[in-house]
Amino acid sequence: MLSRVKGLSRHFTEESLRSYLLDRSARRADGCLIVRGYGSRRDVHQKVAGRAWAHIAAFAVFIGGYDPDLDVDQRCGVPDCIEPSHLRQVSRAENCRDRRRNDKCRNGHDREIDEATGKYRRVCRACNREAQRRWRDRQSAEVARARATFGR
């Protein structure tokens, strides 16, 4: 069973991996079992036990029946949660469909809704407009330098 988990160190047995994951995790007030992986960042998917994703290893150990062709999804939406009741296996299409799009872009602009699909636009128009303005400014400065260099 554990041999199907990609990146998992081979020296783990089911029992040793179970105790390893429980030793590296802490329970939150909302019921999530948060694992502490190799990195220092929180609220992202964590790698443990070799190079395996913690939520996939937890699914294989705590629940069993892991199918590598399906994605392991957290129902709670917390990426570093390994609580067995929050884990489920779904198809890639269903996993992508369940993702939540933010109503603001990474620069804080409000996202517009695309009239054709009824969903948020993938590209923020304000960010795109600013990026194009910066590109035009760089291009005009480069042309001005070239003209000054060659005397036109």
Rank of each mutant, 00 (worst) to 15 (best):
R4P: 00
R4S: 12
K6C: 08
G7R: 01
G7V: 07
L8F: 00
L8Q: 09
S9N: 13
R10I: 01
R10K: 15
H11M: 00
H11A: 00
F12A: 00
T13F: 00
T13N: 03
E15S: 09
S16N: 06
L17S: 09
R18V: 00
R18W: 00
Y20G: 02
L21F: 00
L22E: 13
L22W: 02
A29F: 05
A29C: 02
A29M: 05
D30H: 12
D30F: 09
D30I: 00
L33F: 05
V35A: 01
G37E: 02
Y38K: 10
G39I: 06
S40Q: 10
S40M: 11
R41A: 14
R42A: 12
R42Y: 07
D43N: 15
V44E: 08
V44C: 11
Q46N: 02
K47M: 03
A49L: 04
A49H: 01
A49G: 11
A49V: 03
R51M: 08
R51W: 07
W53Y: 15
A54S: 12
H55E: 01
I56C: 09
I56L: 06
F59S: 00
A60S: 08
A60G: 04
V61K: 07
F62K: 07
I63Q: 02
I63P: 02
I63S: 02
G65V: 08
Y66P: 04
Y66R: 07
Y66H: 13
Y66T: 02
D67T: 03
D69C: 06
D69T: 15
D69S: 15
L70G: 04
D71M: 10
D71H: 14
V72N: 07
D73M: 03
Q74E: 11
Q74K: 10
R75N: 12
R75F: 10
G77K: 08
G77E: 03
V78N: 14
V78P: 01
P79W: 11
P79T: 10
D80I: 03
C81F: 04
C81K: 05
E83G: 05
P84Y: 10
S85T: 14
S85K: 15
S85W: 12
H86S: 09
L87V: 06
L87W: 12
L87I: 04
R88F: 03
Q89T: 10
V90R: 06
V90C: 11
A93T: 12
A93F: 08
E94T: 10
N95E: 01
C96Y: 06
C96S: 12
C96A: 14
C96R: 15
C96V: 08
R97Y: 13
R97L: 13
R97K: 15
R97C: 10
R97Q: 09
D98H: 14
D98K: 15
R100A: 08
R100E: 13
R100S: 12
R101H: 14
N102H: 15
N102Q: 11
D103T: 08
D103Y: 13
K104R: 15
R106A: 13
R106D: 13
R106F: 09
N107Q: 08
N107D: 14
G108M: 10
G108S: 04
H109G: 06
H109C: 11
D110C: 07
D110W: 07
I113T: 14
D114H: 09
D114W: 11
E115A: 15
E115Y: 13
T117I: 01
T117S: 15
T117Y: 07
G118D: 04
G118H: 04
K119H: 14
K119G: 11
